[in-house]
């Protein structure tokens, strides 16, 4: 009887800690006021900065087979860390997890080909832009239609990586307006799945960032960019913890310095020229 009681308490504790505490966590987060100490202090004290990225998006960020991080964002961030005088530690995570990880202080900041979006701005802050890229419409061998302007895709089966700015753009400009039927838009978790489906003909056209699009063109025979435009894609920004003014100032300062020194242009040349 006594044993049963102890066990009951145990079970309640476990389930309680799982379910009961859940609503408290977000409260605590939002009540984290801007007056709390800046991450910059802890970064400087630790002498290192923890940066999250989803290293599956060459040429912005990827790993070589020794596990070393390489890419445009990677080298750029390395230059920023060097400018700050701290060591750089990479944390790889799926793209979808990165914003949450910054919010929940699992990492200091994230660079992973992020674009500014109002929705994300509610949850985190953005640095000044460090680079601007375009959207591309990518088709496979044997595509016979014409895509002169973005709206021309509404008669086609369209693929997009879910959660990206391109996804947002298609949803708000073509789906919500009723131009493109929901069932004609396939959302993929990763670019590679989308590319494989494009090759197999399950979708007619992919909308994605121009740089990785060019990359796919070189990987898949017959892939072809039929239209490039600056639609969804604004400038690329680094994702920062919400309200951390000091950290944002420091990162912006570093970006400005790298733009002025021509380092960013040099990196773009290295990674984006075909």
């Amino acid at each position: 009887m006594k044993k049963g009681l102890i066990l009951l308490v145990l079970v309640i504790l476990i389930t309680g800690s799982l379910l009961g505490c859940q609503p408290e966590a977000p409260l605590e987060q939002t009540s984290n006021p801007p007056s709390s100490p800046s991450k910059l202090d802890s970064i400087n004290t630790a002498g290192k900065i923890m940066v999250g990225t989803s290293a599956d998006y060459p040429p912005y960020e990827s790993v070589d087979e020794s596990g070393k991080y390489i890419g445009f964002d990677i080298e750029l961030m390395a230059a920023i860390a060097e400018g700050m005088g701290v060591k750089l530690e990479w944390v790889d995570m799926p793209f979808d997890s990165l914003i949450a990880a910054v919010q929940e202080n699992k990492i200091d900041l994230s660079i992973s080909c992020f674009n500014y979006s109002e929705e994300r701005d509610q949850q985190v802050d953005f640095s000044e832009a460090y680079y601007t890229s375009k959207d591309a419409f990518l088709v496979a061998k044997g595509f016979s239609g014409t895509i002169a302007k973005p709206e021309d895709v509404v008669t086609l089966k369209v693929g997009v990586q879910s959660g990206t700015v391109q996804d947002d753009w298609l949803t708000s400009n073509l789906i919500d307006t009723g131009l493109l039927k929901e069932e004609n838009l396939s959302r993929y978790e990763r670019v590679d799945q989308a590319a494989l489906d494009l090759q197999a003909g399950r979708v007619d056209v992919l909308m994605l960032d121009e740089v990785p699009a060019k990359n796919l063109v070189s990987q898949y025979e017959g892939f072809n960019i039929v239209l490039s435009a600056e639609l969804s894609t604004g400038p690329l920004n680094i994702v920062l913890p919400d309200g951390d003014v000091a950290l944002k100032a420091e990162i912006d300062k570093q970006i400005k310095a790298l733009q002025d020194s021509g380092k960013i242009e040099e990196l773009a040349q290295k990674y984006f020229s075909e």
């Binding site: 999250g52 290293a55 599956d56 998006y57 060459p58 990827s62 790993v63 070589d64 087979e65 596990g67 390489i70 944390v91 790889d92 995570m93 799926p94 979808d96 997890s97 990880a101 990763r190 670019v191 590679d192 590319a195 494989l196 990359n215 990987q219």
Partner: peptide, 23 residues
């Protein structure tokens, strides 16, 4: 656990697949 960035089998396959294009 790949969702949390633990470099287990699947995440490594994704990463190496992305970098090599050999998915």
């Amino acid at each position: 656990v790949y969702a949390l960035g633990v470099p287990e089998i699947l995440r490594r396959a994704q990463l190496i697949g992305a970098s090599s294009g050999s998915y």
